[in-house]
Design a protein around this nucleic acid. Structure first.
Lengths: 137, 137
DNA sequence: AATTAACTTGTAATGATTACAAGATAGTAA
DNA sequence: TTACTATCTTGTAATCATTACAAGTTAATT
């Protein structure tokens, strides 16, 4: 469900969020750098283009986009949050050697454990850990 | 794979870890309080019994037990880590209203996504979020 | 009982994240 | 276009979880 620019505008409008320069740049960065970046990586990546950018703005922006459902936080055992544009279901694999996070296809919405029959499930995350092909060599 | 006291002793011995009073108490707390407690919850829970206990010790102990594979950290979107004794595979559900974390049965080791054929998978975690039966009312 | 590596503890340091207040800007409406 | 106002951005200061470190203590081995 990749969002077009117009979808995006509507989405933000609905939540009384403005389409500021900084927000567009953060979204652009997330779109072009599918590495599940940390706040610091986003900040450093954008600082070249927007020298006045503040790290607080990156935090604010990400929180706003997460609230709007446009961005998803990845919390996979680091003490530093990572961010991903919200796309269709996929799992995340973290290599314990190089630290890279890889996406993999998995049909998460098919999981409906009977233990959770009476629960309202809004979100399903699958996190794997181990060693990636590169680091196995 | 619940560990007996003797298993535990051996496990620790293997890693050159001592069976100190504080460590036993932390393990006892985790065994008796299956609420995936935070460091602070563990600290406050044990402080009554061990008034000299230091929070640093709780951190050190948990890190040692995690390294030894006896305890597993739960990182489910809070910025505060939670801990669980390592038992057989199960998923975690976090209620976004009350914040409680529930266990549920799920056969995680059955998931072998083809995308990860060349990866060495060491650990699989499943985190769901939503609203628990109590808070749905 | 002596020895020593490993442990505990308190304090200080670190690092990510948020609070806050003042100035800037996007979008609306005339 | 212009004016208006709520929202956003920014820098600094505060907060909170976690780790570093050093000095004293203890578990386990001899």
């Amino acid at each position: 469900m990749d969002l077009s620019f117009e979808d995006l505008r509507k989405e933000l409008k609905n939540k009384n969020l403005r389409l500021s320069h900084q927000r567009l740049k953060v979204l652009e960065f997330l779109t072009n750098n599918r590495i599940h970046p940390t706040v610091d990586q986003i900040y450093r990546g954008l600082h070249k283009d927007i020298p006045t950018l503040s790290k607080t703005t990156v935090y604010n922006t990400l929180n706003a986009l997460v609230d709007a459902g446009i961005v998803k936080p990845i919390t996979i055992e680091d003490n530093e949050a990572r961010y991903d544009i919200a796309t269709q279901d996929h799992g995340h694999f973290k290599c314990e050697v190089c630290g890279n996070i890889y996406d993999f296809d998995i049909n998460i919405s098919a999981f409906n454990p009977s233990d959770l029959d009476d629960f309202k499930i809004k979100d399903r995350d699958v996190y794997f850990r181990g060693i990636c092909p590169n680091c196995k060599k």
